[in-house]
Simulated assay, not measured.
Amino acid sequence: MKKSILFYLIVFLVSSSMFSQETIENTSTKNFNEFKLNGLYLILGVFEASYETTLNDESAVGISVLLPIDNAVNSDIKYAISPYYRFYFGEKYAAGFFVEGFGMLNSTNRNIDLFENNEDDFRTDFALGFAVGGKWVTKKGFSIEIFGGIGRNLFNNEGTDYDIVGKGGVNLGYRF
C-alpha cells in the first residue's frame, strides 16, 4: 500500500512538472518608432519627413510633414500635415502590404493657370483619404516603403477643380 501511494505521488510530481508553463519574453512584440524621409519627393523638390510608431504587430499610427524646397513647387503648395493609421497584412512585425487611412491639412494654390500669370491664391483645407503600399524592414531596422493614395478636400473647394489630393512616394527610414 505504501509502495502504491509512493508510486502515485512520484507520477503526480513528474507529470505536474511536465505541464508547467514558463514565461518567455518575446522581443517581437515590442513596439517600435520609425523616422522616414520620402526619397522620391526629394528628387522632385519637396521635403517630406514622417514619424511612425507601432501599436501592435499589425497596426501603426504616424504623421508626415511636407514642405516645398524648390521655387517651382513652392508656387503650388505651401505645406501639408498628414496624420495616418495603417493596418499591415504581412507576417513580419508591422511590415508587408498595408492599407492606410489619412487626414491631410494642406495649403495649396487654387488659381493654377498654365498660360496666365495670376496672383497666388493659397487656401487651407482638410482632406480625408486612403492609401495602399508595402513596407520591408531589415534585421538592422532599416526600412523602405512604396505607397500611393488619394483623398478629397472637404471644405474650401467650391468653384475649383482642385479638390483631390494625392499622397505617395518611396520612403527610406530607420526603425528603433
Rank of each mutant, 00 (worst) to 15 (best):
K135Q: 12
K135M: 12
A95L: 05
T23D: 05
E48K: 14
R86N: 14
K30R: 11
F176W: 15
I81N: 03
N153K: 14
A80I: 09
S20A: 15
Y41V: 00
S15T: 11
I112S: 04
Y88F: 15
S50M: 10
E158Q: 10
N171P: 05
Y162I: 10
R110L: 15
S75H: 09
W136L: 12
G173H: 05
A80S: 14
Y51R: 04
G169K: 00
E91L: 12
F155D: 10
D125G: 07
G134V: 11
E119H: 09
F142C: 01
R175V: 15
F98S: 04
E52W: 04
F47V: 09
S20D: 02
M1S: 11
M1F: 09
G149K: 08
V137C: 02
Y8K: 01
F12H: 09
E34F: 07
E145T: 08
I63H: 00
T53G: 11
V99R: 06
L114A: 13
L42G: 04
M104K: 14
N26W: 04
L67P: 01
E145V: 02
Y88M: 09
R123L: 10
F47E: 07
Y51W: 06
K140Y: 13
F47D: 05
D125Q: 08
N156T: 05
W136Q: 05
K92Y: 12
N111H: 12
D120Q: 11
Y93R: 13
I77V: 15
